[in-house]
Design a protein around this nucleic acid. Sequence first.
DNA 1: ATAAGTTCAAGGGGTTCA
DNA 2: TGAACCCCTTGAACTTAT
Lengths: 120, 120
Amino acid sequence: MASREDEVRSCAVCGDRATGYHFHALTCEGCKGFFRRTVKKGIGLTCPFEQCCEVNKNQRRHCPACRLQKCLDAGMRKDTPSPSVHPQPACTLSTTCVATAHTSSRYQHFHGPASDQVHQ
Amino acid sequence: MASREDEVRSCAVCGDRATGYHFHALTCEGCKGFFRRTVKKGIGLTCPFEQCCEVNKNQRRHCPACRLQKCLDAGMRKDTPSPSVHPQPACTLSTTCVATAHTSSRYQHFHGPASDQVHQ
DNA sequence: ATAAGTTCAAGGGGTTCA
DNA sequence: TGAACCCCTTGAACTTAT
């Protein structure tokens, strides 16, 4: 139908109108905010059913667990620099350098419910 | 190395198409701008991991700290030879350190994640 | 011709508040 | 919860300098 090149782009999670790429997936403002908040809280969500609730524009609010799951399935994730091979601390000798690198509590990651990522 | 004009010249930092030499290294427009801006700001970037993130065309935005590191490794520098301008690699002093590092001179500066926007 | 600097629209993450 | 807004970073295109 939409023949225009700037045809409506729909949210990869709920199908609503997408506003752009958010956390690596084309999503609407709603799912963008939902994902940000949820990941930040890092709480565990549980689907009261079988983890297969439908997630569309009208029902997306009904089951956060399934919505989050769909977000992840859509490829959403906090920006995690891809940790290449196993990190080889180049500066192992420099006390100063290593000290901060390793003891830093910011050393947590991977899509995880990590609190703060590489962000402002 | 690449002295042939027909050969595709790729950015020494991210592999994207290079547009020429910028700050003494063959780089793309993106890394050129990134380097200029970053050095100018002179803020400390901190990698949430271990300063070993992959830096390619698609991921270069994810970890500014590692991107800057790779710029330096590629030989980029402001024309002013005065070392006071750019960060002083903690590892440069140690031969061993440099030797073990998979790339070359890795450093890690930490002016604290104060207000920096280490973020893509 | 090259490389350094400048401009500016787009991208995208965070915050606010109804 | 999500629309609206804010603001920083990017990078392509352009201008200036050598």
